[in-house]
Amino acid sequence: MSDIDDKLMSPADAVRRFIGNGSQVAIGGFTINRNPMAVACEIARQGVRDLHLVCHSHGQALDLLIGAGCVSRLELAYGGNGRYAPTCIRFRDAVENNKILFEDYSNYQMSLRFLAGALGVPYIPSKSGLGSDVIRLEGFPPGIRKERNVAPKKVVVAQNPFSNDDDPVVLLPALTPDVALVHAQYVGDDGTVRITGLSFADIEQAKSADVVIVSCEEIVPRSVIRRDPDANSLPPFLVDAIVHAPHGAHPTACYGFYDYDPGHLNLYRVAADDDENWRAYLEKWIYGVPSHEAYLEKIGDTVLRALRADPERGYAVGLDRK
C-alpha cells in the first residue's frame, strides 16, 4: 500500500476519467522530446473529439492528435519535428485545409501565459512580439471569443503604467487549461514528480491546469525521491493521475532513458504524407493495439535497445539519426 494507490491508473482510465470532448489540454514536452505519447495515443484510441490544445513548440503528440481528428482548436508557437518533419505534416494539412481553428503565439508568450495561469494573475506583460503579425493578427474568429477558456482578445498592447515615457508592452492572457499532460522520468510512490534534463514549460503548464496527468518511466520509493529533493519538479498534491508507462514518450526522446526513434519518425513522415497511408498508420499503431504495452511489443525490443541512452550523456551515442 503506497500513498498513490488512488492516483495510479492505466492510460485508458486516466483519459476516461479526466479528458472529455471539448477539454482544453496542455501537452508537455517539446517537438521530439518527452511528449506524453502513451496518454496521447490513448486519447486517439478512445476517439475523444474537439480538444482545444495549448502548447509552445510541439511535434509528435500534437501531430498525432490532429491527424486522428481529436482537435478542433489549437493555440501554439510551433509545429515541427526537425528533419523528420520541418513542419508537422497533419498539422500543416489541417491548417491549410481549414480543418481546425488555430492561433499563433511565440514560445516565450505561450510559456508566460502558462506562468500567469499558475500565478493566478489574469495576464502577464512582455516585450516580445511588438510590431509583429503574431500580435497584430487574431487566429480565432470573433464568434468563439466569449466561450470558456478562450481569451476575449488574443493580446493587448498597452503602455507601461509605471513610466511617463512611451513604453509599449504586450499583455498576454493567462492560460488555465482543464488538463496538463506531463511525461516525467520518475515519480515517487509518494507522488513526487522528477523531470530530468530540460523541463521545457512542463512545470508552469502543470501548475496552470485544473488536472495534472503524469506518466513516467519509473516509479521509485519515497525514500529514493526524497533523498535529493533539489532535483524534484512537482509536489504530490498537484498531481491527479499517475500512469506508469515505460517508453511512454516513444518515438520522442526521454533524456537519460532513450533517444528519439529515427526509424519510427521516418515511417511516420511517409505515412502522414498521404491520407490513405495515414489511415493505415492509425489502424496499425493506434486503433489496432489495445494498450501501451501492446504498442511497445509491436515496436520491438531490438529497436528499443538501440535507442537506450548512455547514462552519462543522456542520449544514444552514435545513433544513426538519418
Binding site: 513548440s57 501554439l76 508557437a77 510551433y78 515541427g80 491548417v95 514560445n107 516580445s128 509583429s132
Partner: peptide, 21 residues
C-alpha cells in the same frame, strides 16, 4: 492568407522572441 494559407510553416517557436529581445 494567414487564416487559410497556401503553405503553412512551423510558426514562430522562439524566433519572434529572439528577434524582439
Amino acid at each position: 492568407d494567414y487564416h487559410r494559407p497556401a503553405t503553412r510553416f512551423p510558426g514562430s517557436g522562439g524566433a519572434c522572441d529572439a528577434a524582439s529581445c
